[in-house]
Design a protein around this nucleic acid. Structure first.
Lengths: 220, 220
DNA sequence: AACTATTTTTAGGCTTGTCTAAAAATAGTC
DNA sequence: GACTATTTTTAGACAAGCCTAAAAATAGTT
């Protein structure tokens, strides 16, 4: 099995390679995300390369191997299943689930994860709308649109968020925006692209373009 | 907060001091339970003493301080709540819960444990009948009797086990004995003290004295 | 009280994962 | 193409936890 730290590195490399398709993941990018120093990252990259979990060329960044990808995707699966548990069952707020799931994702027991998946009734997305990889490592990713890119009078459902910070999610809580809310775009301001949006055919609220840039929607 | 390892040492010292009342806990006893070497234990005892978690006198064994006791009892509380979760919600067998709970007990989040306690509806015992310490560290321990010490015709309820090994618990599974089962002692053999016991007023089964020595019961 | 067996501690070393400071490689600019 | 800024790697060190082997303390026996 792989250590807490190894799983975290692999998961981070996975997330970064998702963001910047094709390109190699850089040492500094990993250090930033893991809140550690570049020198520490280099050390770990050598060890992960020795274990054939990544392809590492000095000064050229890294990519996951098939083997490393499986570990990373497994960690993401565990993380997101635990998030669903915390949100659905323990009634955590969606801004609270990430931190605790960062710990829970490293519990080592495939049996546990199978049982948890069953208990949660095989969820397909986590509380932020991110897809949960299957046991076999496949991900069903829906193509979502940014709210900011929607046209006037469009009717949509909130299906995800691009930004995962606690501050942003709390901002959405204050506006009573959460996954599954149905929106109709009533007006779009020409100057700053802020929107006036109707929630559940009732309240009209103002959504700043900064907020709208980070909300993912699908057609209603 | 305290590390995974520190919590394990404190929990072990707690369990040992429960067993052998009054007396100091010895280095070797800790090493045995934690499956490590005496030299490693001595190292850690010094560190725990520096942090005022234990009272340690060279060659004389250790005792928990108030501070160390709180950490230990907190870890036991977390362990047993997770066991209830695994058993009640995820449908683990009672012989399967311990191993995974050994990992889950080290997740750091008081908020999580509060929420879990609520979700489980404030259980007072774990799947083996052991009491779950309260948030304040108090334990309501019931005084239970060993099945072997019961008299003929006694009517009792299985309320705990003295032995926690997987092998023993599986043995009980085979005999369909579990927590809450009502027993009536039909006969006690004079020679080897094995018992013929009626389960739920139906099946009569033979319980060896080795098994009866490790089952805790309360009056029906 | 002395001798032996057992327990516990010390000493020195190893691994994992981290750090700082300095060196080397790469990228960007004139 | 040379010079500078940035990124990355190397070198050496440190803390946590563990180990083995040897020394010291304690306990048990006669």
């Amino acid at each position: 099995m792989y250590s807490f730290t190894e799983e975290n590195y692999l998961k981070t490399i996975y997330h970064l390679s998702q963001q910047k398709h094709l390109e190699n993941v850089t040492t500094n990018a990993i250090a930033d995300l893991l809140q550690t120093k570049a020198a520490s990252v280099t050390d770990m990259l050598k060890k992960l390369a020795d274990k054939k979990l990544i392809l590492y060329v000095k000064y050229q960044g890294v990519n996951l191997t098939e083997k490393g990808f499986k570990v990373a995707i497994g960690t993401v699966r565990k993380h997101r299943l635990w998030e669903v548990f915390l949100f659905d069952k323990l009634k955590f707020g969606w801004e609270e689930v990430h931190e605790v799931a960062e710990q829970l994702e490293h519990i080592q027991s495939d049996y546990l994860i199978d049982k948890l998946d069953t208990f949660l009734n095989y969820p397909s997305v986590d509380p932020h709308g991110d897809p949960i990889p299957g046991k076999d490592g496949t991900i069903k990713s829906q193509t979502l649109t940014l709210l900011i890119d929607c046209k006037k009078n469009a009717q949509v459902v909130i299906s995800g968020v691009k930004e995962h910070s606690v501050a942003f999610l709390q901002r959405l809580n204050e506006m009573e925006l959460c996954l599954g809310k149905k929106l109709k775009i009533h007006e779009i301001n020409e100057f700053d692209r802020c929107m006036i949006v109707m929630i559940d055919k009732e309240a009209k609220i103002l959504v700043s373009n900064e907020v709208a840039k980070n909300i993912l929607v699908s057609e209603a």
